[in-house]
Computed example of a mutant assay.
Amino acid sequence: MLSFHALPALAALPVGLLVGLPAAAAPTSAAVFGIELAEPGTVGPRPLKPQDARRLALASETLRREVAGRGLEPVDLGAHAAEIRRDAPFYKCEGCAEKIAKAAGAVLVVYGYVQRSAPQVLNLTITVTEAESGKVLRGGQVVIQGDTDDTWLHGVRSLVKNRLFAEPLPNRS
């Protein structure tokens, strides 16, 4: 079972995302970063459990596919791997993702994290920002009940469909 929560800061944003772009319009480039695991109370990086690493990779790839399927053009972040490792986690680092995205030539930034609130209850949060200004354009959170591949992937797809791309992004339609 999933439940959705819009990020409070997004309530005042005007609505608008890439639905209805004219066919001649060039796709907007987006830096889609891998979904991270947030572990409150931990200091420094902690080795991931194999099932968590696999699910993060699956969820990240699903996020990239979903973003590309909504008309955005994901940029290659391979040349920035060292910076990504240095600056992660992005949910804690204000502006780091945007700086890397700008260097990679992206207009938008997409990043997210999963946080366990109980063994079978996880919170997935994904945010879309402008690379130039860091302005949050869209974001949301979904509660995932059940710690399986299917529940993680369903959570990503549902959040993208029902929160991130339910309407055109502000100033992007």
Rank of each mutant, 00 (worst) to 15 (best):
R55K: 06
R55G: 01
R55E: 04
L56Q: 12
L58E: 14
A59P: 05
A59W: 06
S60F: 12
L63F: 10
L63M: 14
R65H: 06
A68C: 01
A68M: 01
G69W: 12
G69Y: 11
E73F: 07
D76F: 04
D76E: 09
D76G: 05
G78I: 05
G78H: 07
G78A: 15
H80Q: 15
H80W: 15
A82W: 00
A82S: 13
E83F: 00
E83G: 00
I84N: 00
I84T: 01
R85G: 00
R86M: 13
D87H: 12
P89D: 13
P89M: 04
P89R: 00
C93G: 11
G95T: 12
G95W: 11
G95D: 08
C96K: 15
A97W: 02
A97E: 04
A97Q: 02
A103G: 10
A103P: 02
A103Q: 15
G105R: 04
A106I: 10
A106R: 01
L108D: 04
L108T: 05
L108P: 00
Y111L: 03
Y111V: 00
G112P: 02
Q115T: 14
Q115G: 01
Q115I: 12
S117H: 11
A118K: 13
A118E: 14
P119E: 02
Q120W: 05
L122T: 02
L122M: 07
N123R: 07
N123T: 12
L124Y: 11
T125Q: 09
T125E: 13
T125H: 03
T125I: 10
T125C: 01
I126D: 10
T127L: 12
V128F: 02
V128H: 05
T129K: 15
A131C: 06
E132R: 07
S133E: 08
V136K: 08
V136H: 04
L137Y: 06
L137G: 07
G139K: 01
G140E: 03
G140M: 03
